[in-house]
């Protein structure tokens, strides 16, 4: 039985890219509209510093 065609491949794409801008740029070069969101994964937190911040903020 034939699978239904994936609509992502037939409809115009709307893309939101999180983080590494390289992926957004690659799509822009293919004339795909992209909304870029600047984001980096949070670094590992130091518990002592977090406790200190609770006191100071």
């Amino acid at each position: 039985m034939a699978e239904a065609p994936n609509p992502l491949l037939s409809a115009p794409l709307s893309v939101i890219n999180l983080g590494a801008e390289l992926f957004a740029e690659a799509l822009r070069q293919q004339e795909v509209p992209v909304v870029q969101v600047q984001w980096t994964p949070p670094a590992a937190q130091d518990d002592d510093l977090l406790d200190l911040l609770d006191t100071l903020l």
Binding site: D46, D48, L49, L52, L53, T55, L56
Partner: peptide, 8 residues
């Protein structure tokens, strides 16, 4: 981070 520790 060092400065914050010293401030604390």
């Amino acid at each position: 981070e060092q400065a914050l520790r010293a401030f604390g």
